[in-house]
Design a protein around this nucleic acid. Structure first.
Lengths: 344, 344
DNA sequence: AACGTTCCCGGGAACGTTTCCGTTGATTTA
DNA sequence: TAAATCAACGGAAACGTTCCCGGGAACGTT
């Protein structure tokens, strides 16, 4: 009978084969200083021969580290977060960490469940982009933080929590976008703002307002209209706008979907873009290039954002948190395209 | 001094508090039959009071199950797989399983690394949609299967491996799409095929060919052209086609991006869609609705596919594999839109 | 009345690893 | 040369569970 295929070779098997103790093997594998070079090589060779792979659960049980970090994002289907995740995975897998992904579906209750799940699964740290109602879970964030699990916020942050945050300067970029519209000579500019309770909404609106103010534009209650964050929301609000006879000359939308939805309606009503009305989105998506005319938008360094957030959480976990400031602000870019360029 | 906040309450803490043995507590928590109802309630109450949560690592160490299933997809940024993942998460989290996501970036080497990583992390099962060169890892699939870890393929499968697969009938749907074009009265129909080494490419091409044959259309080497799977690929091939003076009347593309890229080029050259040329895509994406005119495409039940694949792997893990056939074929739908409807 | 059952429960090994503590022989120091 | 340091290793506890084995009541069964 051939050597029965034992499920997995353990440290003991190596020890037995070499006639040494498990401690020695462990030390050799972890490259401890208190090990002779020759025995270490011997162990390494035997480990390779036996096709040894350490059991992460056993390690986790004694070290109380899972080498897993939990991720909580609102959704996955818009390719926004997936791009961020790509960056995270690069940084984390390099460091030997693995990601546990959960989606909150824009519901703070699901987010709460997910966070508790992550805690129970003993993740070493949590990366989170909150739902629009982040304040509702603020207490939970604090509780988790208090229990010793580090948290890093990215993109959508909870401002009142004292934890590292990785973001772009939304206000500045919004300002820049609106300034672009103004310089292009568009008259009445309307801001389609996002969900009320999202921090991002406030920040981008601030940018809108500051740009309007800087250039002496008047702002009244009709300058900003509440919208959601999806295509349908933009389409609906645009229709209302047009039907009310208050067609603006330009729209600065909370994000690309809203802008695209609004564009769709505008075209349906026979408006020509950008002659009759201009559009600027935010958080550039692939759709910005597919839609016609191509949509001007603020491009975020998504993959980099993921990478930075990941490195940040690793530093937190490994106690090198001092090297990071509380908030990292990344550089974004305004990509100007046909949807907002005045034809001369 | 107040009760020092011990990191986590364990089963021993409960046992000590109640003056029973750990075995009893364990039995109570796992709802064993050999436990008195009253003591079980006592344990449950104490557990709640102590805010007890079982340590998954300790459990995994002894039961040799991680309650984690590994996922390996080619990419995440096209919202195709994220939609599938959403379905998976629903089914898996419901069953108390957690999901470990890896992306292979269309590289079979990365896929190989990921699979090995998953194995080392002792996942209970693996869900995979392969890279275009799946045959290169066929031996690895078999090895993993042989080592006792079940695998379920979905969407992109490796045909030579004997494992459950969850797919749609690509050939049938391709046939249907092409039939639609023919019935609309389009003359010269060209198929922009996907990557040569992808199973899906062959299947969809078969559907194209069978439909052409069924309706007595002639097929020569100019009827099928190799493309990649991205927007640029479609754009490039379309340009070649037009410049060569061989403008077809309709294009059946391997997928939506290729169709959209081709559409873009067609419009650039002044062709009107669908009058001068019609387009049909595959694997409906959001972009199909954003592009103008809206793109006819085959919609796959993505979330359902994820759910079915997840349930399948759970059945495999729990030894109820007999309830499933080797291959599950889901129903897809051809969504006809303006891009392929002949104007009368 | 002796004997099997059934019902509950405790003791303790086992899972695979890290790590503390101790030991030994060799080397250096006073 | 005795004492102290050091390099390299073994022994064993610990991490938090599950689960097998065994045992003592309480309950029927012949």
């Amino acid at each position: 009978m051939p050597e029965t295929t034992k499920k997995h070779a353990t440290i003991k098997d190596i020890a037995k084969k070499l006639g040494v103790s498990t401690s020695t093997v462990s030390r050799a594998l972890s490259d401890s200083w208190e090990i002779k070079k020759e025995t270490r090589d011997l162990v390494l060779k035997a480990a390779a021969e036996l096709n040894y792979h350490p059991n992460p659960m056993a390690i986790g049980l004694v070290t109380k580290k899972s080498h897993t970090i939990g991720l909580c994002v609102p959704e996955l289907v818009h390719s926004f977060f997936p791009k961020i995740i790509t960056g995270m995975q690069r940084a984390l897998s390099e460091a030997g960490y693995t990601i546990l992904i959960t989606t909150s579906d824009e519901s703070y209750e699901t987010e709460r469940k997910n966070l508790l799940l992550l805690k129970q699964n003993l993740v070493d740290g949590i990366l989170i982009s909150t739902t629009s109602e982040s304040h509702r879970n603020a207490a939970l964030y604090d509780e988790i933080l208090g229990s010793g699990t580090p948290i890093v916020f990215f993109n959508r942050v909870c401002s009142k929590i004292n934890a590292p945050k990785v973001i772009i300067d939304d206000t500045k970029m919004a300002h820049m976008a609106v300034e672009h519209l103004i310089r292009q000579g568009y008259g009445k500019i309307v801001h389609m703002a996002g969900p009320r309770d999202l921090d991002l909404t406030k920040l981008r609106m601030e940018g809108f307002l500051s740009a309007m103010k800087e250039f002496g534009r008047t702002v009244d209650e009709s300058s900003v209209i509440d919208t959601g964050m999806f295509i349908d929301d933009g389409a609906r609000e645009m229709e209302k706008l047009i039907r009310s006879g208050a067609k603006p000359d330009a729209i600065f939308a909370f994000n690309d979907p809203v802008a695209i939805g609004a564009m769709k309606t505008a075209k349906k009503f026979g408006l020509e873009i950008p002659r009759d009305i201009a559009f600027v989105g935010f958080s550039e998506s692939k759709s910005a290039l597919i839609v016609e005319p191509a949509l001007t938008s603020v491009a975020q360094p998504l993959s980099q954002m993921g990478e930075v957030a990941a490195k940040c959480i690793l530093d937190k976990i490994n106690g090198r948190a001092e090297t990071y400031p509380a908030t990292v602000v990344l550089e974004a870019a305004l990509n100007v395209r046909e949807s907002s360029v005045r034809i001369r």
